[in-house]
């Protein structure tokens, strides 16, 4: 028995070492990208390619952000995504609150929820053609506002389901107690429910931001100039150039990954829980 237990312990250690090695391997592409972004141009012609930059510099970052003016695209992305997040939060509360707190026929509730969920599975490419035509006739082509509008709509289904889940976790009795004390419905909502929902709202905001931040198809089709182009369009623009400049390409890649990863530092647990449909409920 003891022998088998010792055997078991050794086996576990081996597996754990393998898992850590696997994690490092999984992260290698990121490492390679960061390393490439820090290499000066001269280091791309040496063979074999070096793992670490010999003379690390932020030259590629400044030449792409300032020299190519990608800082404008970064600004566009931030403005568009933040605006979309605000709309998404407001609209998802408007939908989720009545569906969880007000007395509606159960069939209506599940019907609306299922319809909203089904929109999550609508491939954007199938509505992109008419949306392009509509945006053009409305004179909103190459304007950030059209992307804000679309990101709000396409981010909404996911957010509604998240907010709905968080709302269901707050007992209705808390608000009812406030009503008994004479508080109005809106007072109970803003002063009692909303503060309790704050962590969930934050997680919804982070995920909605990350989803809008990654969006590429609409941005590619509905923008043409730095007036409205988002950062992913800029990333793509560098990739499809005839002569590819490796360190600049890696630098834009690094920037586009760093932004959502930094956001994840806020409320990782809630984000994980939301990304995995609430399966992860670990206290960490």
């Amino acid at each position: 028995m003891l022998g088998s237990r010792a055997h078991h312990a050794i086996w576990r250690h081996i597996v754990q070492v393998l898992i850590i090695a696997g994690l490092l391997g999984y992260m290698f592409p990121f490492f390679w990208m960061v390393s490439t972004s820090l290499k000066p141009k001269s280091e791309f012609y040496t063979y074999p390619p070096s793992l670490l930059p010999g003379h690390p510099s932020f030259g590629a970052f400044s030449s792409v952000l300032i020299g190519r003016g990608y800082i404008t695209l970064l600004g566009n992305s931030i403005v568009i995504c933040l605006s979309a997040v605000i709309f998404i939060l407001a609209l998802s509360l408007l939908i989720a609150y009545p569906l969880t707190r007000l007395s509606l026929p159960a069939r209506v509730k599940t019907g609306i929820l299922q319809w909203i969920l089904s929109l999550r599975f609508l491939p954007p490419i199938v509505v992109v053609v008419p949306i392009f035509a509509i945006i053009r006739t409305a004179g909103l082509y190459d304007r950030p506002v059209s992307l804000i509008f679309l990101y709000s709509a396409f981010g909404l289904p996911f957010a509604v389901w998240m907010v709905k889940g968080f709302l269901q976790e707050v007992p209705k009795e808390l608000e009812e107690a406030a009503w008994v004390d004479g508080a109005s419905r809106s007072y109970a909502f803003f002063r009692i429910l909303l503060p309790l929902l704050a962590p969930g709202i934050l997680a919804t905001a982070v995920i909605s931001f990350a989803l809008s931040w990654s969006e590429f198809l609409f941005a590619l089709i509905l923008t043409a100039t730095p007036r409205a182009q988002t950062f992913p369009v800029g990333v793509w623009g560098l990739v499809t150039q005839f002569q590819i400049i490796w360190n600049e390409m890696a630098a834009v890649g690094v920037i586009s990954v760093i932004v959502p990863v930094c956001l994840l530092l806020f409320g990782r647990r809630y984000v994980l829980s939301a990304l995995t449909f609430g399966v992860i409920r670990e206290k960490s």
Partner: peptide, 20 residues
């Protein structure tokens, strides 16, 4: 660690793959 690839914009994932 596992959450990072999920929030990486796919265009950036394409860039990473190119470098490889």
């Amino acid at each position: 660690v596992m959450i990072v690839p999920m929030v990486t914009p796919s265009v950036a994932a394409g860039v990473i793959a190119r470098l490889i």
